[in-house]
Design a protein around this nucleic acid. Structure first.
Lengths: 121, 121
DNA sequence: TGAGTATATGAACATATGAACAGGGGTGAT
DNA sequence: ATCACCCCTGTTCATATGTTCATATACTCA
């Protein structure tokens, strides 16, 4: 069964006709927005990154200390920090030898909290 | 450089000492919660699933119509619906030949909206 | 009961991802 | 300038994930 077949004989028992389905298609955010959305979620979708974000919840930290707090190698942390920064979930500030990372804005914290509420119900 | 070395000579220029780092470790949610969090985010982290959730934002739909609205095969949609259901982001209701899917609760919508706000800034 | 419709599942394949390792670049102290 | 330290980049390898195709199951109605 492929797409062509389906278009010609729509699901008769279902509630929506082609007009409504097309409306859904059109009201859907554009492809770029959808992709951005899923990319951001993808970045959240890793336990190490969640732990990093959690560690940054109320203070900035340098790479070394994050690695220390999470019991992981500096290299692994650095990779994850890059992902997080590319997704604009964190920002960095250089101070001499150290680079300090902090949450990009409050949304990040709120998003995690929302999901936490969801899973705790 | 490995973990053992680091523990013995902490980053001298950083702001946090071992006591604070241990505090971070202890205040972090337990492993199970962190894992659940990242798993849920992982499920959100796919453009097809985001589009499915979007289609379900204000009404239930059957598999066929979702496939139709998204221009995808029934099989692909069915697989994704299973993931979404396992993560408790959607629920299903059988009605004769059809299975209708809808958002599990309002959090799902709110979570997506939060991230949308974040990326639009 | 058998035909037709709606959905689910399994296997195979391609792609994406995370961790570890090796090496390099920038910074500050001497 | 040189060295030590902090961090980043590129690569490799193992594993995870998404898609497709083929097929199985569930349900309805004649």
């Amino acid at each position: 069964m492929n797409r062509g077949d389906i278009v010609d004989k729509p699901c008769l028992t279902c509630q929506y006709n082609m007009t409504i389905l097309n409306k859904i298609k059109n009201e859907m955010p554009d492809e770029e927005t959808i992709n951005k959305l899923s990319e951001v979620f993808k970045i959240f979708g890793d336990s190490t990154r969640i732990r990093i974000l959690w560690a940054l919840f109320d203070k900035e930290m340098c790479v070394y200390d994050i690695a220390e707090a999470l019991n992981m190698t500096q290299s692994a942390i650095s990779h994850q920090l890059r992902s997080l920064k590319q997704a604009r979930l964190i920002k960095s500030r250089r101070d001499g030898k150290n680079t300090f990372y902090s949450l990009d804005d409050d949304h990040v914290k709120r998003i995690i909290e929302q999901v936490l509420i969801h899973i705790e119900e």
